[in-house]
């Protein structure tokens, strides 16, 4: 068969990265505006922002792990 060959798992990873991409953007947007409004709260906000970033990012990481797990299918 002609055409594109390869693993569909990688396309799945691309799809799974959309949500976390938007989410991480929203989290850091909120962090930036929070620090702009109240610069002295930076330290506390940073911890919360990184925590939110991590919890959001894990779905993209699941995506890349599953892309390789199901890559052979």
């Amino acid at each position: 068969m002609d055409g594109i060959t390869g693993s569909l798992g990688i396309v799945g990873y691309g799809l799974s990265a959309i949500g976390p991409g938007v989410g991480v953007g929203l989290i850091f947007a909120a962090y930036v505006s929070g620090v702009a409004r109240q610069p002295e709260a930076r330290g506390m906000l940073q911890t919360i922002a990184i925590l939110g970033f991590v919890l959001c990012e894990q779905f993209a990481i699941f995506g890349i792990a599953l892309a390789f797990v199901f890559g052979g299918l």
Binding site: V54, E57, Q58, A60, I61, F62, I64, A65
Partner: peptide, 12 residues
């Protein structure tokens, strides 16, 4: 998630 996050970031 703790294990996969570290693995995924380093691997990717």
């Amino acid at each position: 998630t703790l294990a996969l996050r570290l693995f995924g970031n380093m691997f990717a």
